[in-house]
């Protein structure tokens, strides 16, 4: 393989594989949203698009040897912590024992909980709207709907 390409892959793809995949998923979703003819397909695309962004955010919060962002009292820090507790709950010491590299960054997770909720809300509402569309037009294909609108409408 060409060394430049190999170098590129080594530096930009391998350590950032998550980011590459998220972009690809996002592109798939976006493409479906723009070009798909079926409204439900558009919505599936939309869901994929949104999860891709969530994937991106979650990837931000990952740390190489970080665990879940719940402070564990039974982990490797256990002994130190009991010591800290014995010192009448001294705030400073207690803080020092939490190694922040051991925990994933919680903030993106929080944000993405909200984003998931927003996603499902949007999906639900959009499905309701597409049911209304099906009721009025009898189809969910965009081109057929536009055809039905054409003769009567002055648009």
């Amino acid at each position: 393989m060409d060394p430049i390409i190999a170098n590129f892959i080594e530096e930009n793809i391998v350590p950032k594989f998550n980011y590459w995949i998220y972009v690809i998923l996002m592109m798939i979703g976006l493409y479906a949203m723009i070009t798909k003819n079926n409204l439900i397909k558009k919505l599936i695309g939309m869901a994929i698009f949104q999860t891709a962004i969530i994937l991106f955010y979650v990837s931000i919060g990952v740390k190489e040897d970080g665990g879940i962002p719940i402070i564990s009292h039974h982990g490797p820090d256990h002994h130190q912590e009991t010591e800290a507790h014995s010192e009448a709950g001294s705030e400073n010491l207690k803080h020092n024992i939490i190694d922040k590299d051991k925990y994933a960054n919680p903030l993106p997770h929080v944000l993405m909980l909200t984003a998931i909720v927003v996603g499902v809300s949007t999906l639900g509402l959009a499905l309701a709207i597409s049911q209304r569309i099906h009721k009025s037009f009898g189809t969910l294909e965009e081109d057929e709907i536009l055809n039905k609108l054409r003769p009567g409408g002055h648009d």
Partner: peptide, 30 residues
């Protein structure tokens, strides 16, 4: 990916959440 020294993971805000949450709220799940 996964670099613990990245700005987002190493920044003051997330450090604050990880290190101080339990102290100020008594809730282990950050």
């Amino acid at each position: 990916w996964g670099n613990p020294r990245s700005a987002a993971s190493d920044g003051e805000v997330s450090s604050f959440y990880i290190e101080k949450t339990e102290a100020v709220t008594k809730v282990p799940n950050m």
